[in-house]
Design a protein around this nucleic acid. Structure first.
Lengths: 352, 352
DNA sequence: TTGTAAGCGTTATCAT
DNA sequence: ATGATAACGCTTACAA
């Protein structure tokens, strides 16, 4: 395998010169273009590829980020991953992918592996889901000054976080229903132990208060399991129906729940959106193809992915300059996506 | 950061001994348990983590595989990735993930990056899709003796390949319809320039020949675009319907196409499966949740992922032993998944 | 502007 | 059974 020595010898300069040229270091500005070109030609001629392993050993920077996901087959994850991948590419970093598979043991082993690889930083993708990471899970990283950013979930310090402004999301979802004219609205709240649940509910209460909209407790149900599911959406909607309290719109915790709700409504002979509007949250890919296509709130997941890379790159630079590492929180604005499951109750009446 | 030197000093042995113990090298058998334990305790006490960068530099093995996907958000890819991830974990390798995003330029840059990182091998996940990789795309790898395995697509030598036995798949799909009693069967063939198309068609012809089943050319249509789509499935089925040639079952190129076909049939007032059975291919996650759930052929994608790792690990070992590198082809048996879109034409009659 | 040389932390080789 | 020591290929002071 051809080394930097070979290149230096062949082009009649020292290894230092070659190194400086190839790394575009500051000093490269003073090297005549002629020398640069000669070296670059030799590089091509010999088919030289810089050995990043040797480089990392010496410079103590691996240009590598660990990327820890909770389930690689989850579309939520992959959408974020896409954003991460694109941004890493731009910054010259490379991801080492680890799938925690929602398992604590695997998580810990992954951290060990990443430590051995001397990653410059870690991106945790929606990883707090079930693991419910305490501050000590990341201690081995933090102790060694390796910056961590969590994307998709807010995490306790000292990790930085990038996540959706859930409050704004539910606020504008409810505003959409309200503007259409809905006043009797049912809600399916998220699981109690998911951090999002509270934030999402806050947005609802905030808007309701401002608009003087009354939230009827008899029209509010909550997911009992640890995560959302089609099944729960279905059953909770049946439960709402059983309560015999009239409502013209339903706001589900997320898209999956909304799908279940729509099925339950159809089952009960209520057509969506003619007799009941439904709105979801997340904008998973299936939402656009559902029957009817689901009105929902989009989370800009890819954007969150690339943002997390930017945050991490900044942190790594701070570490390089021996600055104190401070956690940063970046929040991403969600976006209302109006499709076919919402309409005004006036129209509902006309069509009913 | 604590080094092997520190461990050696603290436990009163040489670095060699520590290295031998930690790597479970052959010689470790002769080291007394007492020494081993002492060293291991020191490792824990000091919080030592072996520096794999230094190790790689010296041993000339990075214990790293490049994993090149064509689109990280594609479920087909992620299912394979899951299998890869699990297997890598078992072998102590780590994946560097690169997304070619169906772009030639990105593909080439990814190869450069992976070369700099001195990957021990490359797994290309369904990457041949549009890039239509010639043998020279992989030349930089092959020249340096870095083994390559393609998973999901058959690739030209010198790369190894792991892929579905498409012929067996279509054969058993057709057999299923035949056994149910169907004799008038329509087919939607795949795009001309996809390699799979021919293999899949071979299976159909093979079974038809053996069963003395006549394939009516008027019941055969072909996808015109470069890839399958819901839209084409829909339109081609309308085309079949327009031909006024009676058929009791339809075999689609893949699941997506089947979805389009089902919509077109429903649109034309033909109920599935009562008036026309439909079978797909791939078993994408949506197939199970479709309405009605789709009978299809499953590809065991995760299995293909882990198999590809096994093939690659074997290749790397061969390289290590300076054996000649030969491409291996492993084919994976598909599996018929019977759900609700197929039934016998007798029943069809009874229910019609 | 370019060159010399000392590491980075490991493993492999050779001794003992 | 354990140890000394020389690489591995690069970056980076420092020197010239």
């Amino acid at each position: 395998m051809v080394t930097i020595q070979d290149v230096a010898r062949e082009s009649g300069v020292s290894v230092t010169t070659v190194s400086v040229i190839l790394n575009k270091a500051h000093q490269a500005r003073y090297i005549p273009a002629q020398t640069k070109n000669r070296v670059k030609e030799v590089v091509k001629k010999l088919g030289y590829h810089r050995n990043l392993i040797a480089s990392s050993l010496r410079s103590k920077r691996s240009r590598t980020f660990g990327v820890l996901v909770f389930d690689i087959t989850d579309p939520y994850c992959t959408e974020i991953l896409k954003g991460i991948e694109g941004a890493l590419y731009r910054y010259g970093y490379v991801p080492i992918l680890m799938d925690a598979q929602n398992d604590r043991g695997r998580f810990n082993r992954a951290v060990e592996t990443l430590l051995e690889r001397r990653i410059d930083g870690l991106i945790a993708v929606a990883v707090a889901n079930f693991l419910n990471l305490g501050p000590d899970s990341l201690k081995p990283l933090v102790e060694r000054g390796i910056p961590v950013v969590s994307v998709g979930r807010r995490l306790a310090t000292p990790a930085s976080s990038v996540f959706t402004d859930y409050k704004a999301g539910t606020r504008c979802a409810l505003e959409h229903l309200y503007t259409l004219g809905h006043r009797e609205i049912a809600f399916i709240k998220g699981p109690k132990d998911l951090i999002d649940t509270e934030q999402r509910w806050n947005g609802i209460e905030e808007f309701a208060k401002a608009a003087l909209l009354e939230l009827n407790p008899r029209l509010i149900v909550q997911i009992k399991g640890r995560n959302s599911s089609y099944q729960e959406g279905f059953e909770l909607t049946e439960e709402l129906l059983r309560r015999q309290r009239h409502f013209t719109a339903l706001m589900a915790f997320d898209d999956i729940t909304a799908f279940g709700a729509i099925s339950a409504l159809s089952n009960a002979g209520l057509r969506v959106p003619q007799e009941c509007s439904v709105i979801g949250f997340d904008d998973i890919p299936e939402a656009a193809f559902y029957n009817p296509p689901l009105t929902t709130v989009s989370q800009a997941l890819a954007l969150q992915g690339s943002l997390s890379v930017e945050v991490l790159v900044q942190s790594v630079r701070s570490v390089g300059q021996k600055k104190k590492l401070t956690a940063v929180y970046r929040t991403v604005a969600p976006k209302l996506v109006v499709r076919r499951t919402t309409m005004t109750p006036i129209q509902q009446h006309a069509l009913a």
